[in-house]
Design a protein around this nucleic acid. Structure first.
Length: 234
DNA sequence: GTCCCGTGAG
DNA sequence: CTCACCGGAC
């Protein structure tokens, strides 16, 4: 996702962003989820994980990720493999609609990039099956670069905290991109996004969020609106 | 905006 | 049975 020029002081003027960061990181100490692709800095492994996670529950990915990496520990071994060796490992992810994209991606990584994963946004995004989210995620999680990152969960937390109307297209909107970029803890983007994703999954859930466990209960726009009964779940 | 394979949770 | 899943292509 592209970096944007935005006046963060104006955008988040009424919020104490540092306070949010402290509370979130503090919460995360006791609640962080452990996945084999977490803190992985090998672009190949991050790309594989994020590709698998495409519209797929993380517990499903967890079941096959280690076996996949064990069989193809580096991109060279994957590039040498035949489709018939790869696809059976991915069947449980529901890959009929993604396997062709995955095959094309492997082909391009081999033919155009010589087995090196390009670590810039534009080239990553040009790969089949790689869009805004995965391109940014690969860069952020390998290089710890402060880029905006929006998936449905980050959208939900950001929208609720800052009173933004959430729609299906929020993850592609300029407004949300600006907000998450301003909200981002620039000193450690990688961990910031791990924190936010876990917080979204465990507390700020889509349905029945645990607002009583949330450190932002008092200042969360969503919570206060909901309590007043003027709006439904956003 | 709308569809998308499999799986598990409810 | 229905629904969502650390999104992307069309």
């Amino acid at each position: 996702m592209k970096k944007t020029s935005v006046n963060c002081k104006a955008l988040l003027d009424e919020f104490n962003v540092k306070y949010f960061h402290e509370k979130l990181f503090s919460w995360w100490k006791d609640h962080k989820r452990v996945y084999p692709w977490r803190f992985e800095k090998d672009p190949y492994k991050v790309l594989i994980a994020e590709t698998f996670l495409h519209r797929t529950n993380s517990s499903q990915v967890e079941k096959i990720y280690k076996d996949f990496i064990k069989k193809f520990p580096e991109i060279k071994s994957l590039l040498k493999a035949k489709k018939e060796e790869i696809l059976p490992l991915l069947q449980s992810l529901g890959w009929r609609w993604r396997q062709e994209l995955f095959n094309k991606m492997i082909l391009i990584l081999r033919e155009k990039y010589g087995g090196n994963i390009p670590l810039n946004y534009k080239e990553l995004k040009s790969l089949p099956g790689i869009g805004d989210y995965i391109a940014a995620a690969v860069i952020i999680f390998t290089l710890n670069t402060p880029l905006p990152l929006l998936d449905s969960n980050i959208v939900r937390v950001t929208g609720r905290l800052f009173c933004l109307k959430i729609t299906d297209s929020s993850r592609r909107s300029r407004l949300f991109r600006d907000y998450i970029y301003c909200f981002l803890y620039k000193n450690d983007p990688r961990v910031f996004y791990y924190v936010l994703i876990d917080f979204a999954a465990l507390v700020c859930k889509p349905k029945n969020p645990d607002c009583n466990k949330c450190p932002f209960e008092n200042i969360c726009c969503f919570y206060n609106r909901h309590r007043e009964g003027s709006h439904g779940i956003n």
